[in-house]
Amino acid sequence: MESVVSFGLALLLAPLFPGVILKTKALFAGKQGPPLLIKYFTLIKLLRKGSVYSASTTFVFRLGPLISCAAAIMALLFFPFAGTAPLIAFHGDVIMVFYLLGLGRFFTIVAALDTASPFEGMGAAREAFFSTLAEAAIFVVLILFFRMNGALSLAAYFSGSQPISIIGSQGALLLLVIVALFMILLTENSRVPVDDPATHLELTMIHEVMILDHSGPDLALIELGAFYKLFFYASFIACLIKPPPLADPVANTLLFYGVIMLLYMVVGVVESIMARLKMDLVPKYILTAFALVFFAVILTLEIV
């Protein structure tokens, strides 16, 4: 029951936090910014509309939003929010989660190519390239975590006798991992140094340009999927830096969402003070994240 509630809460609250990013950015720019609930309003607005489809598209184009959203929801099913047991957990489920997210990406890319637009092809090519590198980096994180406590499951990482946490015995290594994971979060969710969600020049976009032709409820599904994906990565990092769990589940949940709020604010700050990287520097950026984690793994050879 607790698991169902925490999963439902995550589904419900995930669209709130991107509003936090917008608010932070607005505050940095000295503006008042949109209301915190802006993303909910956007979703409702989109859901009430109809759609215009390009004559070039086929059923694949309509399948894209469905699969990417379903994959993101599936990822949340495995996640132990605020320490409560997730709905599904087994040894090896992380591999499943990242491959499901990969499936979502596959269909987003294919849907983009379905429009016959050169811009969307450009975005698709970039997405395919960068996410491959990011995936390799993520699997190195999994290797490190397996070295640390022998688990291969999201739930087991953060529970049991040796939970992986910054306050554990290997905090210094985790610092590297957290930095790297944050870089991966920015990459995988098309945030600033890699992709600029607020720009209006299609040539420089990655994710936004791929969904140019979607509209109405389809676009709402994509947006929702993107919120869930971002929330998944943020929760991953939040579990690493969260202080030890409190006895009271309500307080624990509040603490967890507090940390997540903080993370989204950091994303907002990063977006305000950094410029987008030149496209050909992005691989180096992701490789740096990869190097950080790989390096942490090599250190476990000696320290563990």
Binding site: L47, S51, V52, Y53, S54, A55, D213
Partner: peptide
């Protein structure tokens, strides 16, 4: 969600 909504076709943007 699409029931009763206007759905039309056009060229790619």
């Amino acid at each position: 969600l699409y029931r009763g909504k206007p759905v039309s076709q056009n060229t790619t943007w």
